[in-house]
Write a protein that binds this DNA or RNA. Structure first.
Lengths: 221, 221
DNA sequence: ATGGGCTATCTGTGATCACAAATGCGGGCT
DNA sequence: AGCCCGCATTTGTGATCACAGATAGCCCAT
């Protein structure tokens, strides 16, 4: 290594993993949670400088994110977070609805009380993020709510695909958050929890579909 | 370049594209169409030797395919095409059903006579592949049938996601083909075409679901 | 003959370098 | 003063090298 291998606050799970994986994970989180605005440009050398690695791991991380649709590389290879067209946003919202309704449906028979409690707790954190006007925290916690529910579906491929959609929508969701100014209590989340408690599958499917669709709707309108 | 840049039969669209893209596309097609058996190992230097490039483009292509689930890297980074568990296969089949039913549904209002003719022609090629016992050709043409239909849905993100599922199922589909010995005329494909002609959406959804599900079913049974 | 340890080789990872294309900035011309 | 050309810089791409860990094969001791 040319530069000193300074830790820069690496989490326990970051130990002993490869450099490109660390770069990938960090960039992925930043994009998914709306920390990067749509259209923002990135350079391999810049990323390398930021994470204290050479161009090689930076390139692999970027290449992987491009493959997942999190970044778009313009002509001549310049890489930036994509600015989605309205059609694309609607399509991704439809994908979210399709996948997440199915996932919630599969999670329903496996939803115990501990899960409900956990979801309630996450909901409280969401309310807190809303009151603090913390966009990134809001998006992250909101997705954690969904992920916690869908993990119960025992469908890793489906969940991975859903997270890919979240990733593509990340920068857009940030822009969305900036547009909705009101203190938005997670109303649909409460409907989801209620349907889970009642074992009401049609209600759950409807609530998930509403929660996923309504936010994106006012972006395309 | 160290080695001579020999063309090795590059198609017109391969001109002026980067090396890793050429490697990626070729490997992707080989995996998706079942040219590589499940569990087969690959090495970066081997790929580089085969395509006459250095390790760098080979690594990027492999990394991208791993990101898409087409390859799985074992502990210590060894890379191979994955051997799917039965649960995984069922999940991917469910994903195919979910996505492709939606895509066909969206394509239905846009399906004109030219499309029907095209599908008929592809079907004839499928029958030809079956009679020739050409597994790779069969899989490729079968997927071309589906892709041709779904292209009409005007939903690129959804189609891309579907192709990712195809990619993950590629080696498995090859194993499936080996198991079904009978000359399998594309019966469901005819049902799909009939439903398209009649404008029968429920029938189309059912036919697509059957076509997607039935093949994979006998692998997990 | 067989089991165990040691080494040669192979593999992925990451850094560095060379190169070409694109970008952007500054100076000179009209 | 405004515009355009040309060069310096920046950027991505690909090749090569150094290195560490894993793998496997081989030799020797029992």
């Amino acid at each position: 290594m040319l530069h000193s291998a300074k830790p820069t606050a690496l989490s326990p799970s970051d130990t002993h993993v490869s450099a490109h994986d660390r770069v990938y994970r960090t960039l992925r989180a930043r994009i998914m949670y709306g920390d990067i605005a749509p259209g923002e440009a990135l350079t391999l050398r810049g990323i390398g400088r930021e994470y204290d690695v050479s161009m090689t791991p930076a390139r692999e991380a970027v290449r992987r994110l491009v493959a997942e649709g999190a970044l778009s590389l313009s002509s001549s290879g310049r890489v930036a977070t994509p600015e989605l067209s309205n059609e694309r946003i609607e399509e991704l919202a439809a994908l979210r609805a399709l996948l997440e309704v199915e996932l919630s449906s599969r999670a329903l028979p496996r939803a115990h009380m501990a899960l409900i409690d956990r979801l309630h707790s996450i909901n409280a954190t969401i309310a807190e993020m809303v009151s603090k006007r913390d966009a990134v925290g809001y998006i992250r916690t909101n997705l954690e709510f969904h992920r916690t529910l869908y993990l119960r579906a025992q469908a890793p491929a489906m969940l991975a695909m859903t997270e890919t959609v979240w990733l593509q929508l990340g920068p857009t969701m940030r822009a969305l958050y900036g547009r909705l100014r009101r203190t938005d209590p997670p109303q649909n989340h409460r409907l989801i929890i209620a349907a889970l408690k009642a074992g009401d599958e049609p209600g759950l499917r409807l609530a998930v579909r509403s929660d996923v669709t309504q936010g994106l709707r006012l972006l395309t309108g």
